[in-house]
Amino acid sequence: MVPGIGCGRRRRAGGVACVDVVALLGIGLLTGVTTVLFGFGGGFVAVPVVVWTDSALGADAIRVATATSALVMVVNAAFATAVTPRRVLAALRGGGPLLVLLGVGAAAGALAARHAPAGLIRWAFVAYVALTVVDLLLRPGFLRPRAPAEAAPGTPRPLPAAVGAPVGAVAAFLGVGGSVMTVPAMRRAGHTMHVATALANPLTLAIALPAAAVFLGGSGDPAGAHPHLALVGLVDLRAAGALLLGALPVIAVLRRRPPHIPDRLYAWTYVALLAAVAVAMVL
């Protein structure tokens, strides 16, 4: 068990009960899978369950969930990037300006999230993910690639640096991570799902690191009346710890033995996962 997580039969005001720990560990395992297979470092998958476990915070739960997911993404994306083959990461060679602008945008987005109305963040999250699903279903290039499925390793088509700041800002503000935007863009640039999702991890790290630094700063409990929550800044360290405890072993195993998934099925599964998370946030 993660140190400091309460495990009574009932959840105390602002506390985390056994059922929450089990849910967090389970979602952590899922984020490990999505980190490796889809480039989701835990962001939008983790947000709904942290909103649920920290529901005692009321409207502020979405802010804490966004901040907590940023810290989870830092660790998951860093670990996944470290064990990604160098030949795959070579596609980002020369992408320094893009990474810098992603970080700058993320810092701005995280600052905005600290002060924005909680309801705005929640419904903007749902709207963005829903619009992304519609875009992936209707616009050619993701489910129906225009280019051949395999992109030549020597001729990668990187994302333009100019998209870095807006992508970083939106990703950090909503807590979705960069993969929700970068994977479709890289897919439409001709990369396979395998390559696009692997490259999403270092891009997510560039977004999550400055965002997490912003969220960790400042005051702790946003509601000022929840001493049982282990908040540092806006980050719930107990929830983050449980999520990471479930995720990291899965990342280690799947990176060594990645499953073979047909490219088209891979793309459809990505869309289905986004749709499921949007529904979870609405409910």
Rank of each mutant, 00 (worst) to 15 (best):
T53L: 05
A46W: 04
V51M: 15
V250N: 01
A165E: 05
R122I: 06
A108G: 08
L111E: 13
A61K: 01
L245E: 04
D263S: 08
V45G: 04
A59L: 14
L138K: 08
A91C: 03
R255M: 07
L71F: 06
R122G: 10
V104S: 07
A223S: 13
A149E: 15
F40P: 00
G220E: 07
L254N: 06
D236M: 00
D135Q: 13
L265E: 09
V75Y: 09
V36N: 01
A198D: 08
L131P: 05
A13Q: 14
G42F: 01
A272T: 13
A165M: 08
M73H: 12
I207E: 03
R12V: 11
L229V: 14
L229S: 12
G32H: 00
L265H: 14
V50C: 03
A280V: 11
W268M: 13
A80S: 14
P184I: 03
A225T: 13
H115M: 03
A225V: 10
V74Y: 06
V100M: 01
A147G: 07
G218P: 10
M1I: 09
R264T: 14
A17E: 14
A169R: 00
G109T: 04
R9D: 10
A91Y: 01
G119N: 13
V33C: 03
V49H: 02
D135F: 14
A110C: 01
L137I: 06
V253A: 14
R188N: 07
P140D: 12
G175N: 06
G94P: 12
A67F: 00
H226D: 08
W268F: 06
